[in-house]
């Protein structure tokens, strides 16, 4: 499974120098609100009243309409464009959601793909909440795989709301590598 991209080039020493450090922080541009929740539910054909009906949410023990737990990622994503920015084309490095261990952590690698993600949820998200995502590089594991030589980089993302409460903590594993050259006769 590949989500290829170039990533930030540098030495393994530069990669190691960032281990345990913050490598990114983004505050989502939009607060939690009912319209974005409805649009998120729609393509999944997801019908749960706690996300759309305040009375149903109160009856289930929430303080208000509650955002789906996994929407925390969406509310922690930066805006993509500013007025006047050039649209992406096929020859560009793909515009992706922020993944600092690819785009902000140097490594001598020109390919990468995500292998695994896990997320633990804590405080619920309610209308008006604003999410900040703080990313750390928490592990580097050199590895030779069939596709090439490189390392697994683990990104810890801590999602907090404006009160400082932790909403979720996720771990994303990315394999960054240089593709193995196929020998030719």
């Amino acid at each position: 499974m590949s989500e290829t991209s170039w990533g930030l080039w540098g030495s393994w020493d530069e990669t190691a120098s960032l281990l345990g450090k913050q490598v990114g922080q983004v505050t989502g541009p939009d607060p939690v609100e009912q319209g974005s929740i409805r649009r998120w539910l729609e393509p999944k054909e997801f019908a749960a009243d706690i996300h759309t009906d305040v009375n149903a949410a109160l009856a289930a023990g929430y303080n208000d309409i509650v955002a789906p737990a996994s929407m925390v990622f969406t509310y922690g994503i930066a805006a993509y464009w500013r007025p006047g920015d050039k649209p992406a084309s096929i020859d560009d490095v793909p515009t992706q959601i922020q993944i600092p261990v690819i785009f902000d952590v140097p490594a001598p690698c020109d390919k990468s793909f995500a292998t695994s993600i896990e997320v633990e949820f804590f405080e619920p998200l309610y209308p008006g909440d604003v999410v900040t995502c703080t990313s750390k590089l928490v592990d580097i594991k050199p590895k030779q795989l069939k596709v090439g030589e490189g390392a697994f980089l683990r990104q810890e993302d801590t999602f907090t709301k404006q009160t400082g409460e932790v909403v979720a903590i996720s771990y994303l594993d990315i394999f960054r590598f240089v593709a193995t050259k196929v020998a030719s006769d």
């Binding site: 997801f46 789906p68 949820f121």
Partner: peptide
């Protein structure tokens, strides 16, 4: 992720709390 959340929510109902995926 969202579809797995729906799978759990459809099954467990509104009072359930999703603690972890992954």
């Amino acid at each position: 992720m969202g579809m797995f959340e729906r799978l759990m929510r459809d099954w467990a109902g509104p009072k359930a709390r999703i603690r972890k995926i992954g």
